[in-house]
Simulated scan of single mutants.
Amino acid sequence: MNRQRLRGLIRKEFLQVLRDPSAIAIAFVLPVILLLLFGYGVSLDAREVPIAVVIDSPTPQTASFVAGLDYSPYFAPRYVATAAAASEALMAGQVSGILWLRGDFDRLLLTGRTAPIGVWLNAVDANHATLLRGYLEGVWQDWMLIQAETAGLALAMPVVAEPRIWFNPAVRSRDFLVPGLIAVIMTLIGALLTALVIAREWERGTMEALMASPVTMGEILLGKLIPYFLLGMGGLLLSVAMAVWLFQVPLVGSFWLLVLCSALFLLVALGMGLLISTLAKNQFVAGQVAIIVTFLPAFILSGFIFDIRSMPEAVQIITHLVAARFYVAILQTLFLAGNVWPLILTNAAALLLMMLIFLGITRAKSRKRLD
């Protein structure tokens, strides 16, 4: 390993990055776009949900009940005259559910029996419908407790829930999505950029010139690896800064531990990209393979959006081959829970093993030969 030759290769690669704005765009512009899109455009929360409210006989009791909907951040009630009109609004997609307070609401309430409330929900999105049902049950339970306290009665309930929410007390999906998105961004930066660099050398014919020079294959690989590693870490710092300061995602754990684990994952992504680039020798093919093999698994099978435990058992086994799975677990732990060492060390060890495998295979497949 000759340091002077290595410095020359690194300088050459940095000059190539400066002359090719696409690399800088992938490293710094793409994270900003993705974070803005997912931070503001994607939400798993059910808030301000339009729901049709039908009241057959308005009374003080019905007014006090629907007031819970008016002041709830989860509902945007729309008062409709008849159940038929509410059903038409639900069929047209104008509302996500119907709440129907029938004419004998007060009479049955005074008799001590359950007040007749009809609820219809659009369950095309099953998760959304389940959330709405839970929110409506919460509004109903709170109202029943208030009515009992006003009347000086004890409301007999078989179970009294006292929830305690850990790690994401605000119950914001953004706090869960943004840290996972950093794993997708790092996968794109590491794998996509390096998947193109060696293939580009082959297409432009400069690889032959490098092989005719005294540089070793190890120096060539390090000359490609180091510049894009620095670009990737720059993209990480930008992403973390946006997550903490723009989207107000709490970083409970150690920042330096986050940087260390991110550097480990970035080396895994760089190793995958270099391996793809070494085998493909064509920029278009290398780019397509990088997206299919690295980006899509990181997006779907990493636990970034979809819970791995809810997947079929065979797919859960396959997710252990996806490096982003382990990195997403580290990110969400450090951001929301803190330095949970057993979890962090286990996932970091998996990333270290993958890094050694991918970089080792890349080095073994790289030869100073034209065939």
Rank of each mutant, 00 (worst) to 15 (best):
I357H: 06
L301K: 04
L9T: 01
V197W: 07
T294F: 00
V268D: 13
T82W: 15
L34M: 09
W256A: 04
I357F: 04
A348S: 12
L101T: 01
D125M: 01
L251N: 06
E208N: 13
T130E: 10
L30C: 04
I198A: 15
R107I: 13
Y40N: 14
T278P: 05
V178F: 06
G235F: 03
T194D: 03
V322H: 05
L37P: 04
S57P: 02
V315S: 02
I361E: 07
E162I: 09
V322Q: 01
F265R: 00
L181H: 11
R200N: 14
S173W: 08
M217Q: 09
G152F: 05
L356V: 07
G235H: 03
W256I: 01
P297V: 01
I300D: 10
I198D: 15
L251I: 04
L359F: 07
N339A: 10
L145Y: 07
R113M: 03
F247M: 13
L90F: 01
F229D: 04
R172G: 11
L267T: 04
L343V: 14
T111F: 07
I55C: 02
L258K: 05
I182A: 08
L108A: 08
L108T: 13
F229T: 02
G218P: 00
G273Y: 06
Q141T: 12
A209W: 07
A241Y: 10
R200M: 07
R11N: 11
L145I: 05
G253R: 06
K281D: 11
A23R: 04
R363G: 09
M355L: 00
W166S: 11
Y74Q: 14
F335A: 10
A212I: 06
A92I: 00
G8V: 12
M217H: 01
Y40I: 15
I146P: 03
L99T: 01
I308Y: 09
A195M: 13
I165Y: 15
L336W: 00
F28K: 11
A25K: 13
A92C: 03
G41C: 12
A323G: 06
I357Q: 09
L181R: 12
A76H: 05
D106R: 04
Q141D: 14
V32C: 13
L131P: 00
I291T: 11
R369Q: 12
F306H: 09
R369S: 15
D70R: 15
S22C: 03
G223I: 01
S213V: 07
G93N: 05
A161C: 05
L36I: 12
A46Q: 09
V268I: 07
A241G: 10
A286E: 09
L275R: 02
V240L: 09
D125I: 08
W140K: 13
A195V: 02
L108Y: 10
A52M: 03
G303N: 00
S64R: 04
G93W: 02
G134W: 00
L370N: 09
F167L: 14
P214K: 14
Q61F: 06
I300W: 06
R7S: 14
A81S: 03
F306A: 04
M157V: 15
A324R: 01
I357Y: 04
L270M: 02
L370F: 01
D56M: 01
D142K: 15
L210Y: 13
A63V: 09
P297E: 06
M1D: 05
V259S: 10
D371E: 06
